[in-house]
Structure formats: C-alpha cells, structure tokens
Design a protein around this nucleic acid. Structure first.
Lengths: 242, 242
DNA sequence: CTTGGGCAAATCGTATGCAATCTTGGCATT
DNA sequence: AATGCCAAGATTGCATACGATTTGCCCAAG
C-alpha cells in the first residue's frame, strides 16, 4: 500500500517552507498525519519512500524520521526501517501518568497568565471542537481528535514554559496514538464538556478547581481505554502490525 | 583550542560499542563531557571536528549533534554549526519550574516501588557523593556534580516511568549547564545532606515528606543561582558566547 | 584612521554511491 | 508435507562529493 494518499503534503503553508529546514517541515507533516491517524500504528516509513514523496534525498528524510523517533512517534529497527509507534499498554499508562503529573502544573501557571484574548481564542477553539463533534464521518473524527489535543497544547502555550510545552507536545501526540489503538467509545464526547469546564474555571481565576477538573479529564480519557495487558508474549508486536 | 583534550573517548566501555549505533555512543560521550563541564557553554562543536575526533564521517557526527540539539544541550545555527547551549536565566527558571513539577511525582512513585536493594544502591551512591565532596580540585568538583545529578536520575529510574525518566535525563543535564553558568556558591554542599534526607524519608515509606524535601532541595539549588536577567537585548546570546 | 567592498576559507546542507544486513522466495532434503 | 538452507532482492548504515551560505580578512577609498 502506498502511503502517499495518506499524507497531505500541503498542510504546511508554502511560505513557512522558508529557504530551509525541509526536514523540519517533513517532520511536521508526518507528525500531523500520525496524530490524526491517517498513518496507522505499525505503518512502515522507509527512507526512500518518504524521500521520494517529499522530493528530497534519503538524507533529509532520515533526519525527519530520526526526530520523530526521538519524540516516540516512530520506532526504528536496525537495518529494518522506521515504523509508526505501536505503544504498549504499559507505555500508555506511563503516558497518562506523566500527563496527570504535568498538566495540573500547567493549569496552575496558565491561570496566572491567561489574558482575555487567550480566553477568546480558547472559545473559538472549543467551538471548532464542537462543530466537528456534531459532524459524522471519519474526517470529522480525526479533526475532532486533533482539535481536542490542540486544547491541551494551547494551554501549555499559555503557561509560558517552553520546556513543558515541548513535553506536552510529545505527550499529546503519543496520547493520540494510544487512543487510536486502545480507545473504545466514541472518543471524547465527554471531552468537549470537560474542556469547557476547565476553561470556565480558568476564566474565573480558580486554578485549584481548574487543576482538579483537568485531572478528572485525564482520568476519563484513560478510563475510556481498554488497556488489558495480554502481554507476556513478545510477539504481540507482530500481531498488532496489521 | 582543540576540544579533543576535553573529551574522554574511553568513558564508554569498548564492548558497549556494539556493532552499531556509534552515533548513540558519541552522543553519550559528548553528553557526559557537557554535563560535567569539560565542554563549556558556548563551545563550538563542528561536525567535521566531532567526526574526526571519533573517527567517523560527518553523517554520524551530525546525527549525534542532532540528538543533543533535541534535548537542548546544544544549539545549532543554520550554516554555522552546533554550540554547547548557553541557557538564559529565563530558560533556567523554566528548567527548575519543570523539575519542581515532575520530581515530587517521581518521588511519590518511587516510594511505592523502592526495594531494599535500591536503598542500598542509593547509600553507595551517596557515599560516593560525600567522598567527592571532601576532595579538592576541579576534577572532584565535576565528579560531585555528576554524582549529584545521578541521584535524581536513579530516583527516576526507580519510579519506573521511562517517559518521565527521559524528561529527567534532559532536565538534569540542562540543570548542570545552568549551574555551571549561574551557580555562585560551593555548589551542593547542602545538596548531599538533602539527598540523604530524601532517601531516609523514602526508606520509611513517607512519600509525603520525601516529596516536600525534594521540593525544598530544588528550591535550594535554584536559590543558589544568580539569575539576574540583564536581558531585553536579542544580542545577549552573542555577549555570553565567551 | 576609519569604513566599505570583495575575495578566500571554512562550514553546513544535500545528494548519491557502496557495503553490510535483513527479508523473502524457492528448492532440496527428511 | 514440513523443515532447513541458500540465493536474490530490498533497505538501511555510512562515507564522500559537491554546491550554498556565512565569516573573516585584506585592501582600497574616503
């Protein structure tokens, strides 16, 4: 199967494609394709394929894949290639444990720095979320998941700590993979309401409450997963390759 | 100045130098050189220099530098090269803010998983710390700083969350850079006692107290820094290049 | 003496070639 | 029929070559 159909090469604007750093642009495009599930876990991303897709040499394609490997979105196997990550249930648990630790802190910072303009921006974002929520079809689903993650990333951005922001970038992206693999229900139907609630608390300056709501939100997301570890077998990776 | 004298190429054992992943080994060696200050902030690390030093091509040297750039230990400037990071005071604050957020959580996980064998290992580690503390000379200083960071990394390891462990890897390494730049006193003379106190609390199973001690410990480290922000100029990077 | 332009050196960005390694299909053997 | 083995194909790992960009120096002009 050719992955080219799954990748929208135009979702990075042409002029951000500055004279340089094409590998960064490729990383971004692949990242987006992965987090909104156009590229399923287990998909092979060979250097030559990626390279020819973006019309660059293997060198720069490789650089992009290395970056993705570093943030845990792809796994590379020696002399075999790069594959979209297939997080284990244990990894999933650790991802959410990390989020439970970090996000309340982000909320606490955000409540002190958020501006009315930020609030308005958040409202727009939530409206968009809701719009996708009411649409049908896989495209809307994907957009909804993406938008849902963006809420958390915007929050991290408002918090103003670029290090935590990068950590959240990684955690949100990997969460999306996990949800793709282990999610059971119609995703975050509850998620939207919870996002709103967090934002309301932030607007009132009630950081305490916002943090609590955020933890509950994360709990709910994780509770919606089916993380039975039918592990113990090393071949479960092979089985989930499909 | 040649950086070769500053790098101990043998500090990775020859046989861990498996048939492959030389870039990983190079990254590790450079990392160690950076975090214990043999390579000062601002030092230029050109691809060819690193390559010839480790007797590899620029390709693999470049991969190592990319990884270091990803974890914030070096900064790369387009068409100019890679330089050991020169964290700004603001970055320093964000690093410690992140640690204040993450480390208490790590302690909380660790207290539930720590074994008597772990405790013994920690004691050994603290003894080593103390030994360096009582020695004189820059080498002992460097070793002390390294050992002090290792305490936090061991804790993360015991906590059992590989994601947080990786975050801590980055934060501890960058902290070392920050201390090198902004530290004022005889480093962690107090640090050792505080490490012991945290361990004691862990041994007693008092996670609450251990977490509090850890926060105070981080506060003390940061309080020892001189983080006056004479910023506002974009060229401050150039000034601090020395 | 200072300033501006231009040339040379150094360094990075990228493409490509070759060797090593892994996978796959078929064939022989049990 | 099942298993083990071997050769061919494919893919990565690495090195090197070439072009682009930046830097620093030197010299000339003011």
């Amino acid at each position: 199967m050719n992955i080219s159909e799954k990748i929208n090469l135009t979702d990075t604007t042409p002029e951000d494609r500055s004279p340089e750093d094409r590998s960064m642009a490729i990383r971004e495009t692949l990242r987006n394709a992965i987090i909104d599930r156009r590229l399923a876990p287990g998909t092979k991303l060979s250097e030559s394929e990626v390279g020819s897709l973006f019309d660059v040499s293997r060198t720069v394609a490789r650089a992009a894949l290395q970056m993705l490997a570093f943030e845990g979105l792809v796994k590379t196997e020696r002399n075999r290639g790069a594959f979209v990550s297939n997080p284990s249930p244990e990894e999933a648990r650790q991802i959410f444990a990390s989020r439970r630790l970090i996000e309340p802190g982000i909320v606490a910072s955000a409540v002190e720095r958020i501006t009315p303009e930020d609030i308005a921006e958040f409202r727009r974002q939530l409206d968009e979320e809701e719009r996708y929520l009411n649409e049908r079809g896989p495209a809307a689903r994907r957009a909804e998941i993406k938008a849902s993650g963006d809420f958390h990333l915007m929050l991290a951005s408002v918090a103003g700590n670029v290090i935590l922001q990068r950590f959240m970038d990684e955690l949100v992206a990997r969460s999306s993979l996990v949800i793709a693999l282990y999610g059971r229900s119609g995703v975050s139907s509850c998620g939207h309401a919870e996002h709103s609630a967090v934002l309301d608390a932030l607007e009132k300056g009630d950081g305490e409450r916002a943090a609590k709501l955020m933890i509950h939100h994360i709990d709910h997301i994780e509770a919606d997963l089916d993380l039975q570890l039918k592990q113990g077998l090393g071949l479960k990776d092979a089985l989930s390759l499909a």
